[in-house]
Amino acid sequence: MQVDWSKNFFELFGLPAQFDLDPSDLLTRYRELQRRVHPDKFASASAEERRLSMQLTTLVNEGYQTLRDPVRRARYLLDLSGVAMNDETDTSMKPEFLVEQMELREALEEACAREDSLRRLAELANDIEHRHAAKLEELRDCFSRGQGALGAARNAVRELQFLGKLLQEIREQEEELT
């Protein structure tokens, strides 16, 4: 019996490997795990226990960060299912999505150039948040349809990443302006 490093994050948190998850339940489990493994609980323990505690807490932190974010959770699930994302090599996207992205990017550039740019940026952020939420629903639906829809889930994840990146850029612009 050893600390089992090969456990996946769902197993580590005692959760089923599925997309649907109750965030407050995840948070409770995260706190319970931390109470058992955190380095503060081993500050005066042997060097070996301190080392194990740091490694395990690192794993619990990484697991929590992965599972609580829906897009990262989806990527992780796809990875467990053997569906690779191939971010670097695979750049094919649905044409209509690419057009939408180009339009949104133009809207971002335009918003920055305007005098009332802060208000424009807030509107744009709101718009993208709505698209993001709708896409998340689509992703949830893909996972509920099982094996056959994993390819569609993969596409939804990639589109969500685009939208997330765009939102991040808007936040950075806003930060620079305020």
Binding site: P16, D25, L52
Partner: peptide
């Protein structure tokens, strides 16, 4: 450390992993 993790999750429903893809 391993026993600690078990205890941490003992209060929770331990799910079965049949839904693991």
């Amino acid at each position: 450390m391993d026993a600690g993790i078990r205890k941490a999750l003992a209060g929770h429903r331990l799910e079965e992993f049949h839904s693991l893809p």
